[in-house]
């Protein structure tokens, strides 16, 4: 996969390293000469010094043959224009914008950039939901937060230990997708009995999220 990343800083550095380790080809576009040199010395990848929202820089980065473009500069307007240029001129199939102002997620979508994420929004959501329930070890909002995938570990306090699943009154908007017992995943059936230390992978609608967590953890 060929990926173009527009931006700078540690996040771009680590993101590039992650992509490179997954056998992706990465090109970084950055408008600061010192940053470019910093990247070039540390990463075995192409670094282009230029304005990422400029057609010329994207051309230099071979945007026409790219599979994915990520715009993550500190200026949302630069991210928007970079994404629109990638979309309209080079037809890059997958375009992702990391916006700084959470309000711009909606704005970007209305202006044709379907995949816009706000780090602030994602992190605050995770923190909000995690603070309430200590047992949650993982949380991924999907479909713009319309559905959540959550991992919950059952402690001795859980009121559902020892009960077969079919006897637990699960809300309709929740599905227990998998039970991880001592690192072994089990696909749950009606007769499966939950034990202390089980990690449950849940798929839930946001409305039922708290209800199902209270049911499983016993927290009020």
């Amino acid at each position: 996969m060929k990926v173009i990343i527009i931006g700078g800083g540690k996040v771009v550095y680590f993101l590039t390293k992650t992509f490179l380790s997954k056998e992706c080809q990465v090109t970084i576009i950055n408008n600061n000469k010192d940053d470019c040199e910093w990247f070039a010395k540390r990463l075995k990848t192409t670094v282009i010094y230029g304005d990422g929202s400029d057609q010329k820089s994207q051309e230099d980065a071979a945007a026409g043959g790219a599979d994915c473009l990520i715009a993550m500069t500190p200026a949302d307007e630069d991210n928007l224009i970079a994404c629109q240029v990638a979309d309209r001129i080079f037809g890059v199939p997958r375009i992702l914008a990391l916006v700084n102002n959470p309000e711009n997620v909606e704005i970007f979508k209305k202006l044709g950039i379907k995949l816009a994420l706000s780090t602030v929004e994602v992190v605050s959501k995770i923190i909000e939901e995690k603070i309430e329930f200590e047992e949650i070890t993982n949380l991924i909002p999907l479909a713009e937060g319309k559905i959540n995938v959550t991992e919950v570990e059952l402690t001795y306090k859980s009121p559902v230990l020892g009960t077969p699943l079919k006897d637990i009154d699960f809300p309709k908007g929740a599905l227990l997708a998998c039970v991880i017992r001592k690192d072994t995943p089990i696909i749950p059936r009606g007769f499966t009995i939950l034990e202390e230390g089980d990690k449950l992978v849940l798929i839930t609608m946001p409305d039922e999220y708290e209800k199902v967590l209270r049911l499983l953890t016993g927290e009020k």
């Binding site: 057609q55 928007l80 224009i81 209305k110 202006l111």
Partner: peptide, 28 residues
């Protein structure tokens, strides 16, 4: 870029009939 973004928001989200943006870079 800021001009282009604001102009698009004004035109496409707030439906302002006449939107004009100044651009220093003629390529854009």
């Amino acid at each position: 870029n800021l001009n282009l973004m604001i102009a698009q928001v004004a035109r496409n989200i707030f439906d302002v009939p006449c939107v004009v943006a100044r651009l220093f870079d003629p390529k854009r």
